[in-house]
Design a protein around this nucleic acid. Structure first.
Length: 273
DNA sequence: AACAAGACCTGCATGC
DNA sequence: TGCATGCAGGTCTTGT
């Protein structure tokens, strides 16, 4: 579920609760996450002081005082919530961190596609999940020229290209559908046919869309919540995702749904060429 | 090698 | 009501 704007919102809402705090206890209730939680995980985090809380692509990165980084990935249904310890535990709360102000950080993830890990800060760049990451459109900049270049080396569908985290890091199914609408491009078009002008439009619209979604605190259909448990509201502003049969906000034509790689694909047959 | 499809998990909506 | 089916926002692995 959570794509770049949701992860950014989680990082921002976590920041206020975490920066400067010390972790006093760590409890793993369910180690069988997408990456299993290693046995030394709790020991490496206990007693650490928290520095910055950052985001890269769809990863939350929490810097610790001993040159380690605590990493959280939310998968599809993951949540990180900060709450008082008196709040009732829920089914699928897999890890709990206690802070020196008494609050708890809880990792909750019904489908267990998410995970949490701790790494030496200087090992982060060589960590396999990070090795393949392409530019983060909000942190690294993202040019039409570069996108045009990659697109022309591939015959994939445009939608598959943009979902590829090595091409651009942070987009998922919702925002790929939306950005292709904004750029006026059909999801099923082959990437090597992308014109330079269209690549420029995409490169311009990607950060614009992501920033706008962050302003609305992301998209909440079912699971997604920020660290305070609040929903986002960008779902009310989506143009195509999950709007099959509804009128296009630009031209009124019914939004169409296709299936691509077993995932919902949505577009306006009139506005997108 | 590049690409597409399947697998990983659980919960929920839908239809019979 | 109960059961089966299909679907869900991510990413890794397998097969063509």
């Amino acid at each position: 579920m959570p794509e770049l704007p949701e992860v950014e919102t989680v990082a921002r809402t976590l920041r206020g609760h975490l920066v400067g705090r010390r972790i006093t206890a760590v409890r793993i209730l369910e180690p069988r996450l997408r990456l299993p939680v290693p046995a030394d995980f709790a020991g490496r985090l206990a007693d650490r002081r928290i520095g910055a809380v950052r985001r890269r692509a769809k990863y939350v990165l929490i810097d610790l005082d001993d040159a380690q980084v605590w990493v959280i990935h939310l998968g599809m249904t993951g949540r990180v919530i900060v709450c008082p310890p008196t709040r009732a535990r829920e089914r699928h709360d897999h890890a709990v961190w206690t802070l020196d102000d008494g609050n708890e950080v809880r990792f909750h993830d019904p489908r267990r596609f998410g995970f949490t890990a701790v790494l030496a800060a200087n090992a982060l760049a060589d960590w396999p999940p990070f090795l393949k990451l392409g530019p983060d459109p909000l942190l690294d900049g993202f040019s039409g020229a570069a996108l045009y270049e990659v697109a022309h080396r591939s015959r994939r569908r445009l939608k598959d290209l943009l979902l590829d985290q090595s091409v651009v890091a942070g987009l998922g199914n919702i925002y790929v559908n939306e950005v292709l609408f904004r750029a006026g491009l059909r999801p099923l078009r082959r990437s090597h046919l992308l014109t330079r002008a269209a690549a420029d439009r995409l490169a311009r619209e990607i950060p614009r869309l992501l920033r706008e979604a962050i302003r609305w605190c992301g998209t909440s259909f079912s699971d997604y919540r920020d660290a305070d448990g609040n929903r986002g509201s960008f779902q009310d502003r989506l143009c195509v995702y999950q709007r099959q049969g509804l009128p296009c906000r630009t031209c009124g034509t019914a939004i169409r749904q296709a299936r691509l790689g077993n995932r919902g694909t949505f577009f306006c047959p009139r506005c997108q060429k």
